[in-house]
Amino acid sequence: MRHAASLEDIATTPLLWADFASAPAVETEANPNAGHRDRLRERARKGGLSALPDYELLELFLFRSVPQGDVKPRAKALLTRFGSLAAVLAASVEDLCTVKGIGPAVALDLSALHEVTLRAHREPIVKRTVISSWTALLAYVKLALAHEPREQFRVLFLDKKNQLIADEVQNHGTVDHAPVYPREVMRRALELSASNVILVHNHPSGDPTPSHADIDMTRQIVEAGRTLRIGVHDHLVVGREGVASFRSLGLM
């Protein structure tokens, strides 16, 4: 017959982390939502993460940032405020903190998740010739810029083999304009020993159609590069509706 453990036995028996890790969360007065968390995790395990709606996927992530309490209202508030899961992750820490229940620590966690995703998308571009991984490049610039609230002008600097040397933000602007200086673009290309560049900027309006100002500015940069033997492969304009390529549109 097995005897009940004494207090002395309990006090001297080593406790294993596995004992805690495998134990389900207990729904108590202090943690009334533990049951919901366990049920959501179980549904994710059985049905796969792809089967979850956006707000529940966001909930799962928030569980780790917010150990206790109901995070469903926060997840839904984030999606309502920014409009989509992609826009939530692309939002700045300051903007995320405007949502009720989202403090600086949670906002930083969400921004970190976006940065991880961005770096994962950048890997295929860094390790391969940009021209041969064009689909990956388009996916990367869309992830980076489609939900930016202000115009941002970036330059991808490429070596002789068209491999990425650097992806740098040259200027931030307003909701409809980002100042660009062709001499600065070329000066930086020379500093990096770049042979070619790809220009990238976004339209916060969502429509990636190039403007007359975009066309004029691109021509100035192409002309500046020609004298230095630095090629401009393309100018990509990113919007929520897609990515427009100057070269594909016959604009360069």
Rank of each mutant, 00 (worst) to 15 (best):
A112N: 06
S84A: 08
L143S: 08
H203I: 00
S133A: 14
C97M: 03
R188Q: 08
G173Q: 03
L113H: 06
H172Q: 11
F153L: 15
T13G: 13
K76H: 14
L49N: 13
L137M: 14
E148M: 08
A244S: 13
G250C: 07
I125Y: 08
W17H: 02
A86T: 01
D38L: 03
A23Q: 11
G231N: 06
A23S: 13
H3C: 10
V141K: 08
I221C: 04
R240Y: 04
G239E: 09
E184S: 03
L49G: 14
P208Q: 02
I125L: 14
L89D: 01
G48D: 02
R122W: 14
L58D: 01
I198H: 07
D159I: 03
L164Y: 04
S6G: 14
A120I: 03
A136G: 05
E56T: 04
D234K: 01
L251A: 05
N202M: 04
E29K: 11
L49R: 12
G103A: 10
P104K: 15
L118T: 09
D167H: 12
L118Q: 05
P149T: 04
A34N: 07
R64V: 04
T135W: 06
P32S: 08
T174F: 10
A120Y: 09
Q163S: 07
Y55A: 12
S195W: 07
I230C: 11
R240S: 06
F82A: 06
S245M: 03
S248G: 05
V116C: 12
M186C: 06
H172E: 12
D216F: 08
Q163Y: 05
S22Y: 08
L96W: 00
A77D: 03
T80F: 11
D216C: 05
K127P: 00
C97Y: 00
L15R: 11
Q68H: 12
N162Q: 15
P73C: 07
L199K: 11
D207V: 07
L143N: 03
I131Q: 10
N202D: 06
E191P: 03
V180T: 01
L52R: 15
I10W: 15
E59V: 01
E151M: 12
Y181N: 10
A144P: 00
Q220N: 14
G69Q: 04
S245F: 00
V155C: 10
G69T: 05
D38R: 12
L199N: 09
L16M: 02
S193D: 07
L108R: 04
L199M: 15
L118S: 14
L16N: 10
E241R: 13
A178D: 01
E59A: 08
T227M: 15
K72S: 11
R187W: 04
R119P: 02
G250L: 08
D70R: 11
L58R: 02
A120E: 11
R150N: 06
H172D: 05
E29F: 09
L108A: 11
L85V: 03
E184T: 03
H233Q: 09
V169I: 04
D9I: 06
F61Q: 10
Y55F: 14
G101W: 02
V141M: 15
L113S: 11
V130E: 02
T13C: 11
R39Q: 12
A107N: 07
